[in-house]
């Protein structure tokens, strides 16, 4: 059921994420983070989520990396602190506890790839069955995004517009 290719890709994900966290030079960390996004896109294409893979490889691996690099070009690209102070004990104890709690809940989740899992039986078959006659679009993701849930997408563009205004206001040079 679980293919070795998938295990290999998941290992690559964890390794690139850990490298992005551990590397001292910030530009290298950001580029490794871009490769992490790209591996994530490959994993999603493997899962059958091709639209999500496209968006992640364009917006996540491309645009987010460009944002990080632009920020680093106008700021300090090195992490100058040689000896970091020891982290607080609340974080050292609390976050592994959180991880253990999440893993404890793993046995209650539906099996991986189960067609009868709760996420796949309630409303998503309705979209799959009626998408063609309602919207004349063979791609069900497009028909949900642009037709059934068009208001959702509209508000999303409002959020992006607000973010653009906020960036422009934060970055303007001649502040009075």
């Amino acid at each position: 059921m679980i293919f070795p290719v998938e295990i290999f890709l998941l290992l690559l994900l964890v390794i690139t994420a850990g490298a992005a966290i551990l590397v001292k030079d910030l530009i290298s960390a950001v580029l490794i983070l871009g490769s992490y996004s790209f591996f994530l896109a490959i994993v999603w294409a493997w899962f059958g989520a091709v639209d999500v893979a496209f968006v992640e490889s364009v917006v996540g691996a491309g645009l987010a990396t460009v944002f990080f690099l632009l920020t680093l070009f106008v700021t300090a690209p090195k992490d100058t602190r040689i000896h970091p102070p020891s982290p607080p004990w609340t974080a050292l104890i609390g976050l592994p506890l959180l991880g253990l709690l999440l893993l404890y809940a793993a046995s209650d989740l539906p099996k991986f790839g189960d067609p009868a899992s709760p996420a796949s039986v309630h409303v998503s078959p309705v979209y799959l069955e009626n998408s063609m006659e309602d919207t004349l679009t063979p791609n069900v993701v497009t028909s949900i995004l642009m037709d059934y849930r068009a208001f959702d997408t509209l508000i999303e563009t409002v959020v992006i517009f607000t973010a653009g205004i906020a960036c422009a206001l934060l970055l303007r040079r001649n502040r009075t």
Binding site: M1, F47, G48, A49, V52, F112, P115, S117, S120
Partner: peptide, 8 residues
């Protein structure tokens, strides 16, 4: 995304 996978 993992929750939406169906095997096969």
């Amino acid at each position: 995304v993992t929750l939406g996978v169906k095997s096969g």
